[in-house]
């Protein structure tokens, strides 16, 4: 795999969709989260000839949990096309300049060596990892909204895993299973708790 042919676009997609996952609302946020998770998983597991079971497991876990967590009616085509207009997405990013700058800064910071054993590490993977960490950590620590916090947790964890993969390669199978379960738990618990809080506040 030529780094610039696939890793660069994937790193850019991961950072951009990660930023949208924590700044957008409803449809755009969930779609961006699924896109970010896919790009990050492809960067982490680097499929060449065949798909690894760990990658399939990660993608199944993220997509399955996202489908469960999606509020009803969120995939209506017209509304989806409306919410995903590039103009609207750009407006969302300009409304949150700190997040957009964090994403760009993360990608640039990834180019700086970490003083860890990095000869074999990928600059682009490291950049995407640092970007996702910078994007996800602030809302994970401070957001008052449950679903946004769950999405931020997924973004942050994906960033940490990318950073790890840039130096040590992909996770072993057992750790992959545990991490996939972690992604599922974060999204499902987030959706369940958000529903309970909404109903409790309505009463």
């Amino acid at each position: 795999m030529s780094p610039l042919s696939l890793e660069l676009p994937l790193a850019l997609v991961a950072a951009l969709s990660g930023a949208l996952a924590v700044t957008s609302a409803r449809r755009a946020a969930w779609i961006a989260l699924a896109l970010m998770a896919t790009a990050a998983a492809l960067l982490e597991f680097r499929p060449s000839d065949s798909l690894s079971p760990a990658l399939l497991l990660r993608l199944t876990a993220i997509f399955g949990a996202t489908l469960y967590a999606l509020p009803p009616g969120l995939l209506a085509w017209r509304a989806l096309a409306h919410d995903l207009q590039p103009r609207r997405l750009l407006a969302t990013l300009t409304e949150h300049p700190v997040v957009a700058v964090s994403a760009a800064a993360g990608l640039v910071l990834g180019a700086i060596p970490l003083a860890l054993p990095i000869e074999g590490s990928s600059v682009l993977l490291r950049g995407a990892g640092v970007a996702l960490l910078l994007i996800g950590l602030p809302p994970l620590l401070t957001s008052r909204y449950v679903e946004a916090t769950a999405r931020a947790a997924v973004v942050t964890l994906s960033g940490a895993l990318l950073l790890r993969a840039s130096i040590l390669g992909a996770l072993d199978l057992f750790s992959s299973i545990a991490i996939a379960a972690g992604f599922v738990a974060l999204l499902l618990i987030g959706a369940t708790v958000a529903g309970q809080l909404t109903k409790a506040e309505e009463q």
Partner: peptide, 14 residues
């Protein structure tokens, strides 16, 4: 609890 676990999962990967 969810927020705590989200943060700690990242810390443990690091």
């Amino acid at each position: 609890d969810l927020r705590t676990v989200g943060v700690l999962l990242t810390v443990i990967v690091v």
